[in-house]
Amino acid sequence: MDNVDYNILSELLKDASLSFVEIAKMVNTTPYTVRRRYEKLCKEGVIQKNIVSIDLSKIGYQGKAFLLVTVTPTANKSETIAYLRNIKNIIVITEIIGPYDILAIAPITDLKSIQALKTEAKKAPFLQRIDIACVDDIYFPVSPNFGTILSGKSQALTSPQAAKG
């Protein structure tokens, strides 16, 4: 990847819905170049997904639940994950290293919805224990910090010093 790639990424991280023409203006190149680079970055897997950002509080959610799952020592984690990811509203699920084994995140409306989520999740195979942390964060898919931070980072990577390190 070169500076042009990083500059394009940086603009898209700030706003993923920008048109190629708008990006071209910002990074001083032609829309054709932007399109070509964009397609290349998608193909290489650098750009994975462009998602609309939603304020969940506007559609009735109050926050998110972090399900901190502990599985049995002999568990086949992938089976547990396969079960959990079919539960409605679980939007992110990952294996974690630390006191827990799996983290799943789902938006929540009220106490009843947390209860329903937990009841569903408890049916997962190899499950030993579920702890829950509820947060008041209503950003979907992630907070706007995400783009700002990463775009700053991708700019830093374009500087020659960063390239050496």
Partner: peptide, 19 residues
């Protein structure tokens, strides 16, 4: 206008951009 859509987020391959 009603604040449901707030923008657009790009998910990059994070390790490819240094995280």
């Amino acid at each position: 206008k009603l604040g449901v859509i707030t923008g657009a987020t790009m998910f990059p391959h994070i390790s490819k951009i240094g995280f």
